[in-house]
Design a protein around this nucleic acid. Structure first.
Ligand code: FES
Ligand code: FES
Lengths: 144, 144
DNA sequence: ATTATTTCGGACAAAATTATCATAAATAAG
DNA sequence: CTTATTTATGATAATTTTGTCCGAAATAAT
């Protein structure tokens, strides 16, 4: 469904959000340990998210990554997925046409669009804050 | 969403179904031309589908692929996807855990399961026959 | 039987994705 | 200013997915 990069991106963002809620900045090392992801690969993804204005990075000792507290509620999953995987999730054709187009649809178009739109809605409606809620109370997990 | 292999598999199966409705067997060459897919790669996918009892293959001159007419309605997209991509579409975790498990869920679990189940239902309810209907009347297409 | 055609099957190759490594750049702290 | 720490960046490697090639096996037609 999502690329590995995207999965790491979502998990990392969620963890950073969780810590940012208590004003803490977190290092790459801590992040990749907490979400169980390859460190260097995660670094690139975080860099990508920083470029896309989703999180803030700081170099040097006591540096790390953070998300502005007041944005945790307004940053949606869709923003993260878009920053990493682009719009393929929203515009992609089920059967691989370059672009989904209702004027020259693939046989699966009608039924697929319904699902894809629900996925889209879900991603657009789910904020980073929501993802942290279950984590805090030990109801959900970022690694096993 | 689906792998390339799966996309080709669905398109090929749909085309074979379309021709099988008029008792025609179709060659690999014709198939990959009609769905615009790499021939040798398509061959492997068709072979895979034949092994999984979704279509019948015949070697030699005037050989090719066919689907039993009386099964075109009962073969569902889910069967094809399963034969090629396995159960990852149905059991996969949104954030990459080995298996989705409600007892130790990822932060996206609850919202993701809803979408995944709808996709599952859609695939289980959509028959190969349904996909051919639009094709016959020029409403849908297998290539652009 | 021979031949032409077509799927089967395995080895191989290319491309994309995922992951690692080494070094540079920034910066906080002493 | 120097040093230690941490992100940034580009090169490289491993893995997976996608795609190609070629000969083997089957079989229909002559
Ligand atoms: S054209 Fe294929 S999903 Fe819309
Ligand atoms: S555990 Fe991640 S989707 Fe169920």
């Amino acid at each position: 469904m999502f690329s590995k990069a995207c999965e790491y991106g979502i998990k990392a963002s969620t963890y950073i959000a969780l810590k940012s809620l208590e004003e803490k900045r977190v290092s790459l090392k801590e992040i990749s340990s907490e979400i169980d992801s390859p460190m260097a690969f995660t670094a690139k993804i975080l860099h990508q998210l920083a470029k896309n204005d989703i999180l803030v990075s700081a170099k040097g000792p006591s540096g790390g990554f953070q998300i502005q507290k007041d944005r945790i509620e307004s940053i949606k999953l869709a923003d993260i997925v878009y920053a990493i995987d682009g719009d393929s999730v929203y515009k992609g054709c089920a059967l691989g046409f370059n672009e989904c187009n209702a004027n020259k649809p693939c046989p699966l178009h009608d039924k697929f669009v319904v699902i894809r739109d629900e996925l889209k809605k879900m991603l657009q409606n789910t904020s980073l804050f929501e993802l942290t809620e279950g984590l805090e109370v030990g109801l959900t997990f970022l690694k096993r």
